[in-house]
Design a protein around this nucleic acid. Structure first.
Lengths: 237, 237
DNA sequence: CTCCAGATGTGAGCACTGCTCTCTTTTCTT
DNA sequence: AAGAAAAGAGAGCAGTGCTCACATCTGGAG
């Protein structure tokens, strides 16, 4: 009857558990380094095992398949991004518009610093891989963090986004659902504005990081800034 | 001194040249089928050779490497998309706004019908692959096709997009350069609006096709429509 | 027509991958 | 101390991209 699954008298993790956790962390770190180095989805479990001075088959004691590793990396990436955004928007002394700009800037900075992670999350970077359900919760945190300044701005001003048409039949309830899932109290029109702004920013970063701006924009700082400012206007910030 | 490289008295392509062209086409077709089937970048030259009843090494007579094949697929995809957009916007009897909506609808339809191709072009879909310079010309055709209705609308109304700030130092010249490369005569502010709208749409499709809308939006028809309408407004159409 | 160069196809092989076995060693619990 | 569970070792399977030496076919020059 499994006495000590950390049940009674919590005696802390055993050395073995510690070692395992450390190895899991090490594996993920090496995997990220590998993705960053090859700048693409050439993730080799055997190479990780090699760097870990471990025989190749031993890595399957930690991850049953390559996809499981990738899933973990994706979840971590969402969390990392959400953290960055929450930090960026946490400065309560700044106004909603400024916090929105801060959030967008932080998002771009995060993406530029680790494009492989951005690709992991917002690109179809990995062959044959389809994100499982475990990733939708952390994905929500990102959107929620981005919403915070907008919701605050809305609550403060009380104005409505009158240039957005009020959403019709299917869209309205979808927007209400999503807002509900994220725990936000905003109007459907505001929610629509947020999703549109998010799409716009993800699109701009996608194009920039995948090299669609080379030869034209690039550096795309000014372009991104202009887009973000425009989105702020459109969100009534 | 190479008499007949189709120089004088054009005797048409030799049977061998015809066979080669057919094989190239066959290879690309099989490659696309494979990408569509696996829904990801698991493109195997050996598998293609197998389906072609050809020994695996023989495929290197046609493409020196996997990346070369992918590059060809990307170029074809750009061309296919540009064709679709040009057809969609070619109805001169329709007004600029309607043509813009048509173009966006066509873009989404193209992307949904062949998500692997969209991923090829606007995602970082292939491990270790970086698009070479050969792809930037066909990429321009896509943007140009999307621009056409906007430029027409601008020319017709003569109004300026006064809600866009006039672009500053680096951005202004970048915008002018890009407009020049695409052969468009539009103001910097209009060009900025077009690029922003393009980003927005690519972002929305990226999110939709990569499954970021599942559980919330989806079907995303209404959401996409709302975004596109809003972009039309913002473009003064 | 013959003949020969160049294009095309063959088959073996290298180094790599993800993943599955069986077996041994280590570690923790009882 | 003993037994169970976890972790590692090592061989192996089927697959990959790609190279090379060799054989075959084809088209145009003489």
């Amino acid at each position: 009857m499994l006495t000590c699954q950390n049940g009674d008298m919590a005696k802390g993790p055993t050395p073995r558990e510690v070692a395992r956790a450390e190895n899991l962390e090490r594996i993920k770190r090496l995997a990220l380094e590998q993705l960053a180095a090859t700048s693409a989805g050439e993730l080799s479990l055997r190479a990780i095992a090699r760097e870990l001075n471990i025989v190749s088959s031993a890595i399957y004691r930690y991850y049953p398949s390559r996809d499981e590793l990738i899933t973990d990396l994706i979840i971590d990436a969402y969390a990392s991004l959400a953290d960055a955004l929450e930090v960026a928007t946490s400065n309560g002394r700044r106004g909603p518009r400024r916090r929105w700009l801060d959030a967008c800037t932080a998002l771009r900075q995060w993406a530029i610093e680790q494009p492989h992670r951005f690709g992991l999350v917002y690109g179809s970077a990995i062959p044959g891989y389809r994100a499982p359900a475990d990733t939708i919760a952390p994905a929500g945190r990102v959107l929620a963090a981005l919403c915070a300044p907008v919701a605050a701005g809305q609550a403060a001003s009380g104005r409505e986004l009158d240039h957005w048409a009020v959403p019709g039949r299917p869209l309205g309830s979808q927007l209400r659902d999503v807002a509900g899932q994220l725990g936000l109290v905003v109007s459907e029109r505001t929610m629509l504005g947020i999703v549109a702004a998010f799409s716009s920013i993800i699109g701009a970063l996608t194009l920039e990081l995948n090299g669609h701006f080379v030869g034209g924009f690039e550096p795309a700082d000014a372009l991104f800034r202009a887009i973000v400012e425009q989105e702020a206007d459109r969100l009534g910030l």
